[in-house]
Design a binder for these strands. Structure first.
Length: 703
DNA sequence: CATACATGAATTTTT
DNA sequence: TTCATGTATG
């Protein structure tokens, strides 16, 4: 991963004492409480090196993360430390990728054929609409959410039947039953299944379990505080070896104060469970922060002190006092945005005047982040930045793989891997249009439903002729033959050059470029889409050529792969090799999406009651909810390296009139007044002098 | 009655 | 940005 602001610990000479202890503790399960910016990736990668030294083979070590990005960064840092040869066989991947690996190898033992398809959330939504016979996307989305949270608690539809609380859930539970039937019929799994099914396998199949215990002998897991119940159970199963001396070989790394995903099933309580269920658990806290100034950390510590503690931890920094944290009050969102822009411009104008500025030179745009609670808040800042002609990037924008044209091609590839993947079939057979319409597909669907076979299987059934007109059947057969032929060739084609030729030939055969220009009235847009398609083709063929995996997916070796093999791993991959990441632009991001990243200059905006902590009408703010919001504030504060500005609205526009806004309680909790913010001119002067002294001290040190 | 446009409101997100 | 709701117009 190449994000310039990714939390790459500014390398201290070696490891500090706590880090060293964490790295060398192999005797019993280990939990590393890694505060923000305390060098946790460093600990994990060094621990991998330590395990290799202790005699583990690389392929026996698994490092599990939550995102592809984190996995890629981890692999890269491990490679830098232990070398390519040792790093290659390491199992560094996401939870879900590990699930895929287990299911591709052993899924047959629980009735899943190895070429099963992975549905993304759009596919799931379509299936649910179908299963629940609704066209209403909002309803289907609620079902999706409900069903997913049941699955994340380890419940199937039968289990969910025991816990339904109201009528809406009762309906969702029935939809879930039909959804499960469909998944089984399509030989497809959703993202939740990628955790749930491997867990089921390991629980019920002793032989498979012991085989996996032989394969993966030591497990490192990142961000444990973000694990949900099912993921936690999977971790336990993976490390629950039959031999006592081989049991509990894991290191979990996390920070209870950065647990911000409770709303999607993550439970901070898993940290406590680790301590409860593993009496020999060694808990090590990393308290030294290598990212932020003392002024920033003091504010962070003060805020989080209002939460009950799970583990004792107090971050400190040796980077100097730094600039005081600034609180700014604005009249309305526009005003706030203008002031944020003004701050960027003034800090940039100042050049290297800020302590430790990159190379002591000008402050770059990429050094700034504007962080907010909710996505819609970005809008007004975008407007202000555009007006000031400052380039920016909004986090969590539409990903490459979400684009319609890419989803078309991915559907085709999924169909090649698993012709029984009905959602993929439907998309491919109608993209581009080939004279197979609603009527034909409805007929085929009815036929397939009656005989309980997939659409693709139904297509070649003898008796289909009785159910559909001759012309329709001919069209379907032609499509089927085309897919079969392409599938055959894709299974034999490997290497970048050949793969590219195959893919280009395929696009030509289906006249995809024409399809794009037909569907778009503006030629420029169609051309842009086609260029995306070309990027996609390049990307797939490069992987066929055996280029080293940079996406954290499954691959641990770099041999040539067939097009079909590459297609197998495609659903899991969320982003192309980051292309725009290195541009010098201001970052706009939600607090959630900012986790794990850092910037020299951070602005937290919209820090108001109602927004942060967030509160909606029908929402009773439980203490737990408030604590999670506070952790969100904590995460925001600890993203900043040199300066932090916290912005709040005195007044907000509501409709046409301005209404009073209340600064967030978290601002008071930062306890800035002692150091001086704006009230006391004398104290402020002193703070400025201190900061200047700190700058001088910092400038004397090598970077 | 249906469609077009304007207005206002808006949790958080990965795989 | 998107999504839903409401008003105005054909």
């Amino acid at each position: 991963m190449s994000h310039p602001n990714a939390a790459a610990a500014p390398a201290p000479a070696g490891l500090n004492n706590a880090q060293m202890e964490a790295v060398h503790h192999l005797e019993s399960p280990c939990l590393v409480i890694a505060g923000a910016g305390s060098g946790k990736t460093r600990v994990i990668t060094h621990k991998i090196a330590r395990l290799l030294q202790a005699g583990y083979a690389p392929a026996q070590i698994a490092a599990i993360t939550f995102t592809n990005k984190a996995a890629a960064e981890m692999r890269e840092r491990a490679r830098a430390l232990v070398g390519s040869r040792a790093a290659k066989p390491l199992v560094v991947c996401t939870f879900h990728a590990l699930g895929v690996r287990i299911l591709r190898a052993d899924g047959e033992r629980i009735g899943l054929k190895p070429q099963f398809s992975i549905l993304d959330s759009d596919d799931v939504l379509g299936l649910l609409r179908d299963a629940g016979a609704t066209t209403d996307a909002a309803t289907a989305r609620r079902w999706q959410w409900t069903i997913s949270s049941w699955k994340n608690q380890g419940l199937d539809s039968a289990g969910a039947a025991q816990v339904v609380a109201d009528d809406e859930e009762r309906v969702a539970q029935r939809v879930m039953e039909r959804y499960e039937e469909r998944l089984a019929a399509y030989q497809a799994v959703d993202f939740d299944d990628l955790i749930g099914l491997p867990l089921k396998l390991l629980r019920t199949d002793a032989e498979a379990r012991s085989r996996w215990h032989e394969t993966l002998r030591y497990v490192l897991i990142d961000e444990v505080q973000d694990t949900n119940t099912v993921q936690f159970e999977l971790l336990k199963q993976l490390t629950d070896h039959a031999l006592p001396e081989r049991r509990g070989k894991f290191t979990a790394v996390g920070d209870d104060d950065q647990s911000i995903y409770g709303w999607r099933g993550a439970t901070r309580d898993n940290l406590r469970r680790l301590a409860d269920e593993y009496p020999t658990l060694k808990v090590i806290a990393l308290n030294q922060n290598y990212r932020s100034t003392s002024a920033i950390l003091r504010a962070a510590n003060a805020v989080i002190a209002h939460n009950p503690k799970l583990f004792e931890k107090q971050l400190f920094s040796e980077l100097g006092e730094g600039e005081p944290v600034r609180v700014v009050e604005s009249d309305g969102e526009e005003h706030e945005a203008e002031r944020a822009v003004a701050r960027i411009q003034s800090l940039r104008g100042q050049g290297g005047a800020v302590a430790g500025g990159p190379g002591g030179g000008a402050v770059a745009l990429r050094d700034f982040a504007i962080l907010y609670r909710a996505n819609h808040q970005a809008r007004i800042f975008e407007k202000a930045l555009r007006k000031a002609q400052l380039p920016y990037r909004v986090s969590g924008g539409q990903s490459f793989f979400d684009r319609a044209e890419i989803r078309d091609l991915v559907a085709w590839m999924r169909l090649l891997v698993n012709p029984d993947d009905d959602p993929a079939f439907l998309r491919a057979v109608t993209t581009p249009k080939r004279g197979i319409g609603h009527q034909t597909l409805a007929g085929l669907g009815t036929f397939a439903g009656r005989w309980k076979v997939s659409l693709f299987e139904a297509l070649f059934a003898e008796s289909l002729g009785a159910a559909l007109p001759r012309k329709a059947v001919d069209g379907l057969h032609e499509f089927g033959r085309f897919v079969n032929d392409l599938q055959h060739r894709a299974g034999q084609t490997s290497g970048a050059e050949d793969a590219k030729a195959l893919l280009q030939g395929w696009l030509k055969d289906i006249a995809y470029e024409q399809h794009l220009y037909d569907g778009e009235d503006q030629e420029k847009l169609a051309a842009a889409r086609w260029s995306n398609v070309m990027d996609f083709i390049d990307w797939v063929s490069r992987r066929c050529g055996g280029e080293i995996d940079t996406d954290g997916g499954l691959t641990t070796e770099s041999e040539r792969k067939t097009v079909l093999e590459v297609a197998q791993s495609i659903s899991l991959i969320a982003s192309l090799a980051e292309r725009s990441e290195e541009q010098d632009v201001v970052t706009l991001s939600t607090l959630h999406a900012a986790k794990g990243l850092e910037w020299p200059h951070v602005m937290l905006v919209g820090v108001n009651e109602g927004l942060l902590p967030f509160k909606s009408e029908e929402d009773d703010m439980t203490p737990e909810r408030l604590e999670e919001e506070r952790r969100l504030m904590y995460v925001g504060i600890t993203r900043a390296r040199q300066t932090l500005m916290v912005s709040t609205l005195r007044r907000r526009k509501r409709g046409r009139e301005l209404v009073a806004g209340t600064p967030s309680r978290f601002i008071a909790e930062m306890k800035l007044h002692t150091a001086a913010t704006q009230e006391d001119p004398k104290a402020r002067l002193k703070a400025l002098r201190d900061a200047a002294a700190a700058r001088v001290a910092a400038a004397g040190k090598p970077a």
